[in-house]
């Protein structure tokens, strides 16, 4: 589904160069749940943001469902409609109600008639457990509730793959669980997911594969069992010893 070949990304600010991604190659199959782990600054956010063109890789190729998003001729908006993204800071639209947040994109991008969009939207809100807050504005919700709305909003476009960029990092501990539950259900239903997170428990339970990144490169890839109990590389062992 997602085929990443040799991508690199360098950030230049003033006179300093930061090599965020160095020659990354990865493949994500349909239905897979891939968790990306690593210390801060390892490039995991940059990597996942490259997948939907929020950061533009300097070289290499990223092929999503057969379309190379780095090709200038590609209509990136069409690709993005099939790739859902959930952000660390939720990014809900504050001037719209919860339901409007969820129905805006389907109506405006996929031209879904309003009634149908509302019906589907309410079903999604029910799925994430927020249907009673449908007419409420985001600033009246807790962090955990907002993130669940954000997930529903992304799902409303019926994407083929969902990207999660540290979805629980900005949440108070007691709300992390509700969001992870939604994500676990999603995984169980067979959604292809790429998740950047620090939640080891989630990785162990749900991931099909774990990618460990450090200093812009992929250090180790493996199943959760392999990764957590029997890592190969020194840096992986170091990282795990600091986390667990």
């Amino acid at each position: 589904m997602i085929d990443v070949k040799n991508i690199s990304k360098t950030f230049v600010s003033h006179s300093t160069e930061v090599k965020a991604l160095v020659n990354i190659t990865a493949k994500i199959d349909p239905g897979e749940v891939v968790v990306v782990l690593g210390p801060s600054g390892s490039g995991k956010s940059t990597f996942i943001r490259c997948l939907n063109y929020l950061n533009v890789a300097d070289e290499g190729s990223i092929i999503i469902n057969g379309i190379d998003i780095l090709d200038p001729k590609t209509d990136i908006n069409k690709v993005r409609a099939d790739v859902g993204m959930v952000f660390q800071s939720f990014n809900l639209f504050p001037h719209k109600t919860v339901l409007e947040n969820v129905t805006l994109a389907p109506i405006v991008v996929r031209k879904v008639p309003k009634q149908e969009a509302v019906k589907k939207g309410m079903a999604l809100l029910k799925k994430v457990g927020i249907q009673d807050k449908a007419d409420v504005y985001p600033d009246q919700l807790s962090g955990g509730q907002q993130q669940r709305v954000a997930i529903a909003r992304a799902l409303a476009m019926e994407p083929k793959v969902m990207l999660f960029d540290e979805p629980t990092s900005a949440l108070d501990p007691e709300m992390v669980g509700e969001v992870l539950d939604v994500m676990k259900n999603l995984a169980r239903e067979g959604m292809t997911m790429v998740v950047v997170t620090h939640e080891m428990g989630f990785a162990r339970e749900v991931a099909d594969r774990v990618i460990f990144m450090d200093e812009g490169a992929i250090v180790e890839v493996g199943t959760p069992e392999h990764f957590f109990s029997n890592p190969t590389h020194e840096r992986t062992k170091l990282f795990l010893s600091q986390i667990l």
Binding site: V12, Y53, L54, V56, P72
Partner: peptide, 9 residues
Amino acid sequence: MMKGSKKSG
């Protein structure tokens, strides 16, 4: 903002 820093034709 999101396009490449390379200046196109």
